[in-house]
Amino acid sequence: MGSKLPAMKGRLFTIGLISSWYFSNIGVLLLNKYLLSNYGFKYPIFLTMCHMTACALLSYIGIVWLKLVPMQTIRSRSQLMKIAALSVIFSTSVVGGNISLRFLPVSFNQAVGATTPFFTALFAYLVTFKREAWITYATLVPVVAGVVIASGGEPSFHLYGFIMCIGATAARALKSVLQGILLSSEGEKLNSMNLLLYMAPIAVLVLLPAALIMEPNVMSICVALTRQDKFMAFLLIVNSAMAYFVNLTNFLVTKHTSALTLQVLGNAKGAVAVVVSILLFRNPVSFIGMAGYTLTVIGVILYGESKRRLK
């Protein structure tokens, strides 16, 4: 009985972590959609800046005060420049994703986002000339075909939103490829929480002038809106805090399970997000659109399986 208790506690802890990861991932996605589309808060760059500000503050508290993970220091100017480059690409991907949510339903946004493995394989080849096995490339065919089918069958298709979503997905994939190259040496490797600690403040410095130029008077408009509706300030704070917890729970789930488990859970998370968003926002869906999304998810699962077997 004594040996079973710690094992059960361990399982419950893992289940709790995974549940928290699901809740924060799907929660921030749905809140972004609600704020940018349904609530009428039309400032995706400023919203992303709020996310990055929360990530910077909460990362500092989590690492320096709470000591969730050991502090890792930047060792050279070169390493700092690499982190800055990753931060700009990361910010671009988040802004693009948030802009797309203004124009696209969450279900279609998730379908396009599922093509990340395609862009990862593409950038890995273009940047590092790394070739995958033919079977791995073959699994990317349904990934892309599914999105093409879903696009044709999407009742709420919006070209600008679609372009932004594709751009965000490509930027996310490029960031993961470059991160593997730029921070590959033992002296420069950072765990994801320390990387976020350094990337987030740089992202804020990049996004602040972008928001002021591209979303003029956003600060005064936000102040006026929060005076009119205190609930909006609450939504912004909760939404920004959840953006940090997405990264924290992502790190903890990977640490306590494995990268493969995270990949499998991520595929299921996309499907859960689609169902929840359709129930909440009542956006119209077609049989062709759902069939396309299903084909994409099947392709992503096959891609992950082929990568695992060839390791």
Rank of each mutant, 00 (worst) to 15 (best):
L5N: 12
P6Y: 03
K9I: 15
R11V: 14
L12A: 10
T14Y: 06
L17Q: 13
W21L: 12
Y22V: 08
Y22T: 07
S24T: 15
S24F: 08
N25R: 04
I26E: 08
L31E: 12
K33N: 12
L35D: 13
L35Y: 09
S37I: 10
G40M: 10
F41C: 05
Y43K: 01
Y43V: 05
Y43I: 09
I45W: 00
I45D: 07
C55D: 09
A56T: 09
A56F: 11
G62E: 08
I63F: 02
K67S: 06
K67I: 05
K67Y: 02
V69I: 09
R77Q: 12
M81Y: 13
I83G: 07
I83Q: 06
S87V: 10
V88D: 09
F90N: 13
S91Q: 10
S91Y: 04
T92H: 01
T92Q: 07
V95K: 06
G96A: 01
I99D: 11
S100Y: 02
L101R: 04
V106M: 07
F108R: 01
A111Q: 00
P117W: 00
F118G: 02
F119Q: 02
T120R: 00
A121V: 14
L126Q: 04
L126I: 12
L126P: 05
K130W: 04
Y137M: 06
V141Y: 05
P142C: 09
S151Q: 07
E154A: 06
P155F: 07
L159P: 03
M164T: 07
M164I: 02
C165D: 14
T169K: 00
A170V: 06
A173S: 15
L178S: 04
Q179S: 15
G187T: 13
K189C: 04
K189Y: 08
L190T: 12
N191I: 11
M193N: 00
M193Y: 05
M193A: 02
L195D: 09
L196S: 12
L196Y: 07
A203N: 07
L205Y: 03
L205M: 13
L207W: 04
L207N: 10
A210N: 03
A210W: 04
P216L: 05
P216N: 11
M219G: 02
M219P: 03
M219S: 06
I221N: 00
I221W: 02
L225V: 05
F231D: 12
A233S: 14
L235T: 03
I237E: 04
N239S: 14
S240M: 05
S240W: 08
V246F: 02
V246H: 00
N247P: 11
L248P: 02
L252C: 04
V253M: 08
K255G: 13
S258K: 09
L260M: 11
L262M: 14
L262V: 15
V264E: 02
A268Q: 09
V274N: 05
I278R: 00
R282N: 13
P284H: 02
P284S: 09
V285E: 06
F287L: 14
G289M: 14
A291R: 01
G292P: 12
Y293C: 03
Y293G: 09
G299H: 10
V300D: 03
